[in-house]
Amino acid sequence: MITELELHYGYLFEKELLQEISNVGTIKEVKAGTTLMNIGQYIKSMPLLIDGAIKILREDDEGDELLLYFLEKGDTCAMTMSCCTGNKKSEIKAVTELDTKLLMVPVEKMDEWIGKYKSWRNFVLNSYHNRLMEMLEAIDNIAFKKMDERLLKYLKDKVAVTGSTTIKSTHQEIAYELHTSRVVISRLLKKLEQQGIIELHRNSLNVL
């Protein structure tokens, strides 16, 4: 475990903190499509992402979802931190985008490390800042961008996160994450294909 920590977090944390994380953390490996956290759930441990990717979503009253942002290796979720420190219920849903490896850290260590390690304090503050910027970007996309622009950005983000130009999602799944209808997404995807930007297949597409 310490080797993986040094590989992904060694540039952030001092050796003493890495050793403490290794001593109290537990490795969790989950398949793609696994729900790690649901809205209304209490958080008992905070995840540090070792490998894979996680998508963070919100739900409306009807259960429809909206993609907020992705977490990649070396990240953690600031909204999870907030729930941990305040013993509050989760306001977001977290689902693995890829097969994912996490290091789960007990919540009681968070406050202790903030006072003990400057690197941990900076990591927490930077995580809050980065997630806030991504939330603002999500709001800007909804408020100011047309659906075709949002769809194109979504596809680019998927390619960046997964490292693959093949996106294995149905039109309905994309529509859920962008909080729109399947008909709209199908029409826009067909338009992108005609423009030579993507290539459509059954339950997947290639970004060209």
Rank of each mutant, 00 (worst) to 15 (best):
T100K: 01
L67V: 01
D99G: 11
D60Y: 07
P106Q: 11
E65W: 00
K89H: 05
T100S: 15
M79N: 12
L98E: 15
M104N: 07
M79D: 10
C84E: 04
T96Y: 00
L71R: 02
M79A: 13
G74Q: 00
A94N: 07
F70E: 04
K89L: 11
K101V: 09
L66N: 07
I92F: 07
T85V: 15
E65M: 11
T76N: 10
T85L: 15
L68I: 09
S82L: 10
L67Y: 05
T76Y: 04
E59L: 10
E97W: 03
C77N: 08
K88C: 05
L67W: 06
L66M: 14
K93R: 13
T85S: 13
V95D: 02
K73E: 11
T85W: 03
G63I: 04
M81P: 08
V95K: 05
L98H: 01
L71P: 05
A94P: 00
L102S: 08
E62V: 06
K89C: 11
D64T: 05
E65A: 11
F70K: 05
D99C: 12
C77R: 03
F70G: 06
K73D: 13
M104V: 01
L66I: 14
E62D: 10
P106E: 13
K73Q: 15
E62A: 12
E97I: 01
P106V: 06
A78C: 13
D60V: 02
D60E: 10
T96L: 08
K101W: 06
E59C: 06
K88T: 09
L103W: 03
G74D: 02
T100V: 12
E65P: 04
L67D: 05
C84W: 08
N87R: 13
L98R: 00
M79W: 00
D64P: 01
C83F: 06
T96I: 07
E62T: 08
G86C: 13
N87K: 12
E62C: 00
S90H: 02
E59T: 13
D61M: 10
M104Y: 00
G74Y: 07
A78L: 03
G86L: 15
P106D: 14
E62Y: 08
K73M: 09
G74C: 01
E65C: 10
T80Y: 04
T76H: 05
L103A: 02
D61Y: 07
G86T: 14
M79Y: 00
K88P: 03
S90V: 09
D60T: 03
I92V: 14
A78V: 10
E65Q: 14
F70V: 10
G63C: 03
F70I: 06
L102I: 09
L98P: 08
T76C: 15
D60H: 06
M104G: 05
T96D: 00
K101S: 08
D99R: 11
M104I: 02
K73L: 08
K88E: 11
K101E: 12
T80V: 15
E72N: 13
G63H: 09
Y69R: 09
E91D: 14
K89G: 15
L98T: 05
S90P: 06
K73W: 06
G63N: 02
M104S: 06
T96P: 03
D99K: 14
P106K: 02
D60W: 02
G63T: 09
D60R: 05
V95C: 07
K89N: 04
K88A: 11
K89Q: 05
T80C: 15
